[in-house]
Amino acid sequence: MDVRLRGDGPVDPFLGAASLFETEHDLDLPVHVRVRGNPEERTWAGHYDDRHVLNISRKAATSAMARELALHEFAHMARYEEGHPSHVQSTDEALFLALSGHSIERRRLAHCYQIANHMKDIYADDITLSVGPAGKLVTFFESQLAAAVADRPREHHHPDSRLLTGATDPDITAVNAAFALAMCDRHDLVASDHRLYDLAHAAADDAPEVDLPAFRRLFRSLAADPTESEHRKALVEATRLYAVDADGSGDGPAAAD
């Protein structure tokens, strides 16, 4: 696995992540790590014909989560190289199928993209958690969800994190809580009395129109190796559950292929 650091930043977290990743997986293309100065910039992966690019802020690159963030992005790259539907299918197409004939607020549309990203993250972290320890990820879920529940803004803010953010509105915070619980369910990460469950209950109370248990079930039950049709249907279902089903029942008709 070829990892090349671009810019001024620590090397050890990325080499450490590569060593863990290589115990079970590999990448065909080299990875260029770009450490950026903007502390608020999220960590994300770009894919090109001749390389992958891991973009990360200096703040994140020097944090206690640096190795885990890098490992997560390597997993996204692996999903992209294998042509996993979650990483190569058009999100726009699925959202168009789900929302055709409906008018929704701009903020809710932005949240639909966040939900699609959660589904990508689930498949990436299925790899991440197969090669690396889960403790820091659970702590990250807990701290970020606690911050979001404690910070109940009066105005709406778009989420800008790979997982969970503080200062988000209650609706997307509830979905984020469902995502965190679903990841714990999929990989049996926490006991039933973990604080995450109390935080998720508080998030659900703040967003009565969001069916948190339904999102948790949907995220938890995503097939490990879906067909393109299966993944499209899951994304359409998640979008409709959030943006269309006023009562949060999630029982609307499935999109046609």
Rank of each mutant, 00 (worst) to 15 (best):
D126L: 12
D126I: 09
T128V: 06
T128L: 13
T128S: 11
S130M: 06
V131P: 00
G132E: 02
P133S: 05
P133W: 02
A134P: 10
A134K: 12
A134N: 13
G135W: 12
G135V: 08
G135Q: 13
G135F: 10
K136D: 08
K136P: 02
L137E: 15
V138T: 09
T139H: 09
T139I: 07
T139D: 09
T139S: 10
F140V: 01
F140H: 10
E142Y: 03
S143C: 04
S143M: 13
A148Q: 05
A150Q: 03
D151A: 10
D151H: 02
R152L: 14
R152V: 14
R152F: 12
P153A: 14
R154W: 04
R154Q: 09
E155S: 08
E155L: 00
E155G: 01
H156K: 10
H156S: 14
H156Y: 15
H157F: 15
H158E: 08
H158W: 05
S161R: 10
S161N: 11
S161Q: 12
R162V: 12
R162I: 10
L163Y: 04
L163R: 12
T165W: 00
G166C: 01
G166N: 03
T168A: 10
T168D: 10
T168P: 01
D169Y: 06
D169H: 11
P170D: 15
P170C: 03
D171E: 15
I172M: 12
I172K: 10
I172F: 08
A174D: 02
A174R: 05
A174S: 11
V175C: 12
V175E: 11
V175S: 11
V175R: 06
N176A: 06
N176R: 05
A177L: 10
A177D: 05
A177R: 09
A177E: 10
A178C: 08
A178H: 07
A178P: 09
F179A: 03
F179S: 04
F179D: 04
A180Q: 03
A180E: 05
L181F: 08
L181D: 08
L181R: 06
L181C: 01
A182N: 00
A182I: 11
M183Q: 11
M183A: 01
M183I: 12
C184F: 03
C184E: 05
H187R: 15
H187Y: 08
D188R: 11
D188H: 01
V190Q: 05
